[in-house]
Computed example of a mutant assay.
Amino acid sequence: MTPREPSENRWSDLDRPPLNVMSLRRGLVREGGLWRGVEVVRSTGSTNSDLVALAVAGKAEEGAVLVAEEQTAGRGRLDRQWSAPPRSGLFFSVLLRPAEVPVARWGWLPLLTGVAVATGLSRAAGVDTALKWPNDLLVTVGGEERKAGGILAERAGDDMVVLGVGINVTLREDELPVPQAGSLALANAVSTDRDTLLRAVLRTLEDWYGRWRAAGGDPAASGLQETYAAGCATLGRTVRAELPGDRSLIGEAVAIDGDGRLVIATEEGVQEPVGAGDIVHLRLA
């Protein structure tokens, strides 16, 4: 789907004003910084798909940021669909090229993005955002954990990665795609100004990416492994891991290992690292 550029008449919902692309560029694009350009489109199928295509075609460089006011075919992990009303959230993708980091450590990039998003939202929205392994963003609504966002990483050729982020910002209860979903507004955010939130998240992402890259992708030396574990709501919980091959594993989530995998301790006393799968929080351990 070809992205549609912002039109002049975009103020149909005054509670959900459009992003100010010029302000975003002034606040994020600077000499020597990571972000090389910020583009905002009115609507597209998926910012990740668009940015991957641009990168593969040689039309985007590291630090490109693509934001959509509306995604009509947004995707999460396991090809799950992600949709929301126009201008009700932040839907964006960034292109990274961590050439100095061994490919074996690139699996930390979605976890790094989760740390950056949670930190940025805590600062700018005043919302305590927890991380569900590997890449869900959780907020508390009425004492209940709910998913308010997610992260998707995709390779673009051999040497680039596109990271997509979707965050529900102003969704109301009657607009939620499923009852278990949430939004920053429902979590009593002190600010739902999307320009402010996006700047905070991208600045924090730039900081963490710089630290991780300077450490050669080492999650311990960069502080990423410790920080992710501290903000991970999955650790200390009894979980069920739905694994490839229709296998499931139940146990306590006890650690995040050096490869970013979730370590689950079973009742049999076995500690099994899980690198891929769907995690269900059952209860506190």
Results as ranks from 00 to 15, higher is better:
E272C: 10
D158K: 07
A64L: 10
C232L: 12
L121T: 07
G260W: 03
G164T: 11
R87V: 06
A229C: 03
E31R: 13
T44F: 02
R123A: 14
W106H: 14
R211D: 07
S43W: 08
P86Q: 03
E226H: 10
V270C: 11
R36I: 10
R213M: 11
G217Q: 06
W11D: 14
R213D: 10
E69N: 08
A189V: 09
N20Y: 12
A255G: 02
A116Q: 01
T129D: 01
A73M: 13
G150E: 05
S93I: 06
A253K: 10
G114H: 03
W208A: 03
T140G: 04
L205Q: 01
Y228P: 08
L197V: 09
T234R: 01
L186E: 00
G114D: 04
V165S: 01
G245F: 05
Q225M: 12
K147W: 04
R77C: 10
P17R: 13
D158Y: 00
R203H: 02
Q180P: 05
G120L: 10
V141K: 01
W82M: 10
E252L: 06
L78R: 15
E70Q: 15
G269T: 10
R16A: 05
V115S: 04
R172A: 14
I250N: 11
A229I: 07
P102S: 12
P219W: 11
P85T: 09
Q225I: 05
A215W: 01
R16S: 06
R240Q: 10
V165I: 15
L243R: 08
D136Y: 13
G114Y: 00
G32A: 07
C232Q: 00
I250D: 15
A73Y: 06
W212L: 14
A148D: 14
E69V: 01
P134D: 02
P3L: 02
L152M: 02
L121N: 12
L112T: 02
V254P: 07
E242I: 00
I256S: 09
